[in-house]
Structures are given as structure tokens and as C-alpha cells.
Design a protein around this nucleic acid. Structure first.
Lengths: 112, 112
DNA sequence: TCGCTATATATAGCGTTGCTACGTATTGGG
DNA sequence: CCCAATACGTAGCAACGCTATATATAGCGA
């Protein structure tokens, strides 16, 4: 997976990971990795700043806790975050359809 | 369509537009706009630098001509460009599948 | 004739974004 | 005892597409 492919689509993935319940940052990264069979394996230097950005935007809300001696910041989706997630999904559908059309996407080279 | 959504996927679209035959820059922009029903309507300040980049990379080859008093730079896909297009398509398939899965969105209808 | 639009190309500067590389700290296994 | 995994964080960077602006011609309507 090319590195820059994700640009502009990361927020939606993070919000989606938090939709089914609160998670801390590291768990979000693991959940995305597991859900995609390792195809989306984000570096922590990508995850944490993105979560901070989403929190600043009011789309997620975080709270500190300590589990097994390690401090954790657990995030939950806010109402605004839920609405944003719906928007991201709709935007993705439209974007993916447009690119698939324009690309004439065939996984295999034209066999003709 | 969010502006930054396209990041990292523009090259493939431009290459795809040139696959069926040489076009000049303005025609590439029009072709993409027409193919997607106006959903991908690139500003010229996006198209021309991108074409220059693809030409520098050897994926397309350009030549000047004059038609109706206006100078045109017509681009054709090189062999390397054809291979790159195949790679872009494969990469798009993988990326789109991963994002669709992680986003929990319905797979887009076609190609099932 | 004048102005507007479409056609056609080009570049400088900007903002956003994800990544690399690093730093801190604890737990637990080899 | 070291090292991996867990868990969080930031600084700096490079890439990319967009905005704004510039140039120039053709053709149309007022």
C-alpha cells in the first residue's frame, strides 16, 4: 500500500474504529490493522496526532486512565463525531465510485 | 467531494485518461470531468503541474503543436506509464477494499 | 469596437497531512 | 539482564493538490 494513498481518508477510519465502543489510541491502531488484515498498519506517529486533531475538532472525547501501570487515553465518539462519520462514509462512497469509474478499474491487465 | 480526498490518486486518473489515446492537458481535464459526471473537475493549477511531474517521471511524453492559433502540448502514455497505470489500478483495488472494510461501508455495487 | 467567455498553458505560494525518527515509561518473557 | 510489546508523545519533513495569478488567442454578442 503506497504511503500517501491514505491522505484525507484517515479521519474516517479512526472514527469508524471508535464507533462500536471507546478505545485507547494503541487499540485503535490494532483494531484497524486487524480489520484490514494488516493492510492498514499505521505508525504510532500517525495515530496519535490524528486523534489529537479529532479531539480538538470535537469529534471524539478522551479521558485518562491507568491500566496495569500504563497510562491510557481512552477516546469515545461524540455526537458530532457520529455525524462526521456518516459524512465520511457518504464522501467515501462518492469518491470511490468516481475514481473507480475514471480509472476504468480492472485488477488485471486487459486480456484482449 | 472533499478537496484533499484525491491526494495520492491523481496520477492514476491522468494516466487512465491518456490510455485510450494522446490528449493535451486541457482535454485531459475535460475527459476526467466528463467521465465522472462532473464529480472530478480538476482546476488547471492541479492538472498542469501533475502532467509535468508525470513527464519528468517518464510515464508520459509530450510534444508541442499549434491548433487554431493556440499552442498545445499533447501527451501520450509511455510504456513505463502503461506499467505504472496497471500498478495504480492494482493499488487502488487494494486500497479501496481496505478502506471500505475498515469504514464498515457497503462494498460499491459493481465488479462483484 | 469592446468586453466576455472558452480554450490553453504556466508558476508561485500555501495549507494540510501522514510519515520518519526520536524520546519517555512500564510490563513481562527469554 | 536485555529486549520486545505496550502506550503515549512531539519535531521536522516531504509530498501533494489547491488558490491565485499571469499570458495569449478565438469567437461571440452588444
Amino acid at each position: 500500500m503506497r504511503a500517501e494513498a491514505l491522505k484525507g481518508h484517515l479521519d474516517g477510519l479512526l472514527l469508524a474504529a471508535l464507533e462500536e465502543g471507546p478505545l485507547h489510541g494503541y487499540a485503535v491502531k490494532e483494531a484497524l490493522c486487524a480489520a484490514t488484515g494488516g493492510r492498514i498498519d499505521l505508525p504510532t506517529g500517525t495515530v496519535y496526532p490524528a486523534l489529537h486533531r479529532l479531539e480538538r475538532a470535537g469529534l471524539i472525547a478522551g479521558s485518562w486512565s491507568v491500566v496495569a501501570g500504563r497510562r491510557r487515553r481512552t477516546y469515545r465518539l461524540t455526537e458530532a463525531g457520529g455525524r462526521a462519520l456518516s459524512g465520511e462514509r457518504a464522501g467515501w462512497q462518492e469518491f470511490a465510485a468516481a475514481v473507480t469509474t475514471a480509472l476504468g478499474a480492472r485488477p488485471w491487465p486487459t486480456t484482449s
